[in-house]
Simulated scan of single mutants.
Amino acid sequence: MTRLLNTGRSTLNYPDRGATARRPLPAGYNHLHHRTRIGHGRAVFETAGTAVTTFEAHRSSGMRIRADNGAVRPGTRVRVGIGVGPLRITAPCEVIWTAYEPTRTGFAYGTLTGHPECGEESFLVEIDAAGAVWFTVTAFSRPNAWYTRLAGPLVPLLQRGYAARLGRRLRALARAA
């Protein structure tokens, strides 16, 4: 069962809270759906699920992550950093929903005031009936800062590249376990 949070204290910078848990994604945004097969079997599923929900997958891909809690839960505040020195961009987010289920593990976070984009992104590990383990990134976003507007169509390309990188890193993490 997917747990969705609505605390009323959030400063999300978009109105479509929880939309990555539903279809279709809202109109007026760039949409991303990237799926990667990361392995086979319950051990791979468990390892990958833990890596996603503790931000280990994000950190191993080069992101700097600061979070309120160790494992994600609705309401967890997250600051995602990319870049170095004066070129570092910090993006504040809040976990919107989580899934800790027998065949699905993951979460979605939404962008907060101050994020260079506005929208939501989910990271979900699933095991199918045949035992194949998949990692899916689903997102909807649009520019929210002058530099993301200036970058135009480059931003969705970078997001797709990052989703693919996360899938590769998660596959490697699961294989190493």
Score class of each variant (00 low, 15 high):
70 G>C: 08
55 F>L: 05
78 V>D: 06
100 Y>F: 13
54 T>W: 03
59 R>K: 15
79 R>T: 14
95 V>A: 14
101 E>I: 09
91 A>E: 05
79 R>L: 08
62 G>I: 07
60 S>H: 07
89 I>H: 07
67 A>Q: 04
98 T>K: 03
69 N>W: 05
54 T>I: 12
71 A>Y: 04
103 T>G: 06
72 V>D: 05
62 G>T: 02
65 I>F: 09
97 W>N: 02
85 G>C: 06
80 V>A: 11
55 F>G: 05
58 H>R: 12
65 I>C: 11
92 P>A: 13
55 F>A: 14
103 T>H: 14
69 N>K: 11
92 P>M: 12
72 V>M: 06
76 T>W: 01
109 Y>L: 06
109 Y>P: 00
59 R>C: 12
87 L>W: 12
56 E>I: 08
79 R>A: 06
82 I>L: 06
75 G>E: 00
100 Y>W: 12
67 A>E: 06
78 V>S: 00
88 R>G: 12
93 C>Y: 10
103 T>M: 13
66 R>F: 03
63 M>V: 04
85 G>V: 11
99 A>T: 14
61 S>Y: 00
75 G>Y: 01
88 R>F: 02
81 G>R: 02
82 I>W: 00
105 T>Q: 15
77 R>V: 10
89 I>R: 06
103 T>I: 15
74 P>M: 08
109 Y>F: 06
57 A>G: 09
70 G>S: 07
108 A>Y: 11
81 G>Y: 01
99 A>Q: 07
106 G>D: 02
98 T>I: 10
79 R>Q: 05
77 R>L: 13
102 P>E: 08
107 F>D: 04
94 E>P: 00
89 I>G: 03
56 E>K: 07
56 E>F: 01
100 Y>Q: 08
62 G>M: 13
71 A>M: 02
71 A>P: 00
107 F>S: 09
77 R>Q: 08
61 S>L: 02
61 S>N: 12
61 S>Q: 04
81 G>E: 06
86 P>I: 03
57 A>E: 07
54 T>A: 08
99 A>G: 04
95 V>E: 07
76 T>L: 11
54 T>G: 15
77 R>T: 04
103 T>C: 12
87 L>N: 14
76 T>Y: 00
68 D>C: 00
105 T>N: 12
55 F>S: 01
84 V>Y: 02
81 G>A: 05
107 F>G: 13
63 M>R: 04
103 T>R: 14
54 T>E: 13
68 D>L: 05
58 H>W: 14
86 P>A: 00
67 A>H: 03
94 E>I: 09
73 R>W: 04
67 A>T: 09
82 I>T: 04
90 T>R: 11
83 G>I: 09
102 P>I: 15
87 L>F: 03
92 P>E: 11
78 V>E: 03
88 R>I: 09
89 I>V: 15
62 G>A: 12
57 A>V: 00
54 T>H: 09
64 R>L: 10
69 N>L: 12
57 A>C: 14
54 T>S: 15
82 I>V: 13
74 P>S: 15
61 S>K: 09
56 E>N: 07
64 R>T: 05
100 Y>I: 02
105 T>A: 12
94 E>W: 08
57 A>T: 01
77 R>W: 00
78 V>M: 05
